Simulated assay, not measured.
Amino acid sequence: MSTTRPISDHIRSGTFRADRHGDKVTLPSAALVEPDWSDLLPGGSEDAEKSREDAAELWARTAPALMVAAGLNDAQRETLSMFCVAVASYWSVTRELSRTGNLLRGRTGELVKNPLHTVRTMYVNEVTTLRKELGLSPAAAARITRPDADDDDYADSSAGSADILRIVQGL
């Protein structure tokens, strides 16, 4: 049993062929809508506010690039939202580890590893998986070829993403 690769993988790797992939379903272009971070990361503390700011900043950096490079649209935004939340949570746990230290005193006074290391490892694994899925790992980024902004076929199919591409290329 073979797994069918998404068309976007074929486009990124340069193996797309219209005769093989032309009849596949494509999702309509729609700009990514940023999630409500206060709903995803509730809380009134300074740490919660910092996590919301971190997630929003990461979204602002990655969403335009993924819309252009990977064709990500609003129907697929949950993966990017999960990535932003996981990274913001990783940063939050790392800040807390920095405050509390790598070792804590146990019940009997002996030094033990801070349990936040386990939580941080969980977020590292989640972020790594989502980076690969979104094509944000260094290896995946090396395979991405951005379409030419002046390409009429691309401009027609992306409904405004060509303007975003010009902005991203200018960064």
Rank of each mutant, 00 (worst) to 15 (best):
R52S: 12
E34T: 00
G22C: 06
D36L: 09
R61C: 06
D36E: 09
T62M: 13
L27F: 13
Q76P: 00
R77L: 01
V68I: 02
S51R: 14
A56Y: 00
R95K: 09
F16D: 08
S81A: 15
D19H: 08
T79C: 06
R77A: 10
V68Q: 00
A63C: 01
L103D: 08
Q76M: 08
G22F: 14
A88F: 03
R20I: 10
L97S: 09
L66W: 00
K50N: 15
V93E: 08
T94L: 12
A63S: 00
A30N: 06
G22W: 05
P64V: 01
L104H: 08
A88M: 02
A75R: 13
G71H: 09
S51D: 10
V85A: 04
T94S: 15
V33Q: 07
M82N: 13
I11D: 02
T100N: 04
Y90K: 10
A75C: 02
E78C: 04
D23S: 15
R17C: 06
L40F: 05
T26D: 14
P42K: 00
R77S: 11
G43P: 05
G101S: 12
S29M: 07
S92E: 15
S81C: 04
L40C: 09
P35C: 02
N102T: 10
E49P: 03
E49R: 14
A88D: 01
